[in-house]
Nucleic acid binder design. Structure first.
Lengths: 156, 156
DNA sequence: GACATATAGATGCATCTGCATCAAGATTGA
DNA sequence: TCAATCTTGATGCAGATGCATCTATATGTC
């Protein structure tokens, strides 16, 4: 396979081309469209925002033991102080508990409550229906595979 | 081409599958990663946030005449009150002017100032370099075409 | 052990956002 | 023409977020 000069030059240029800008613009718009559909569906059904679901789900994943905030932080797209305050709110609503951490007196262990599990379970049908509308109704299985793969390249 | 029963069933199921959920998660993460890289680059260079650039660019597109807020609103991903206050800030910084609208006394025409044009021009190198790092360094031209096309299906 | 440094998590303050609503002017329709 | 309704844009208030910093504990080094 030959690589022509203009291809090399094209790939070396500093200015992002039209295609790049279109990807960028659509990435913002597609994310915005999908997320706002989902958030709206949750709100309309009287549920808390997506971030609450994410926290609860993440807490359910991590066994009975609970998880440390700094661990949660890596899975959720939140800064430290954002998570701290999100946990405040979810705790105040009774869906999780913060317990002192045996190993590390600075830290804490966050544990989901029974009510938290129930809430997460109740949210899922609404959430999944919204995902269907926002994503899977719009793309074939193969397209989803491809899109997931390409988006993966933009992460990290 | 034959369509097997299990394919039909798969495509009809209500629950989003693994693939859908992966696309969804990656869409959020990829957007977050790309946008925060860009915002950080702007901030580090002492520039205002991306939304300011978007407004200024949009104002430059629309000729000398300026644009009405409700027109801008359609191009920028902001709610009406968000735009109203963003315009307050940009105006206060001297990069745009709000003028009364001749045709419609309720409305106004937003016009970019000379300083606004200058600012937009000065931001571009930083913005485009960040875009290169966040997007075009990570995907070939063909991949960008495909990604743009697929993201387009999630919009509207 | 004692000190310097690093890490976990919270918080005061300023800013930004979302929601509901408002005021003022435009449009419609009897 | 005049009331009802719609559209444009602003804003008060509550809540969320970003930033810087703080406290407390842990860890590493001598």
């Amino acid at each position: 396979m030959q690589m022509h000069l203009y291809v090399i030059v094209r790939s070396m240029k500093k200015e992002p081309g039209e295609t790049t800008i279109r990807v960028w613009a659509r990435l913002l718009r597609a994310q915005h469209a999908a997320q706002s559909q989902v958030e709206k569906a949750l709100k309309d059904a009287g549920f808390p925002p997506l971030s609450w679901y994410d926290v609860l789900l993440e807490l359910e994943r991590g066994d009975q033991a609970g998880q440390r905030p700094f661990e949660l932080e890596r899975h959720l797209l939140l800064p430290q102080y954002g998570l701290s305050r999100l946990l405040d709110r979810i705790e105040a609503a009774g869906y999780l508990e913060r317990r002192p951490c045996a190993d590390d007196a600075r830290g804490q262990v966050v544990v989901i409550t029974r009510a938290g599990r129930q809430l997460r379970r109740k949210i899922w049908p609404t959430y999944s229906a919204a995902l269907k509308t926002a994503v899977s109704d719009r793309l074939s299985g193969k397209e989803q595979e491809t899109l997931g793969m390409l988006l993966g390249k933009l992460i990290n």
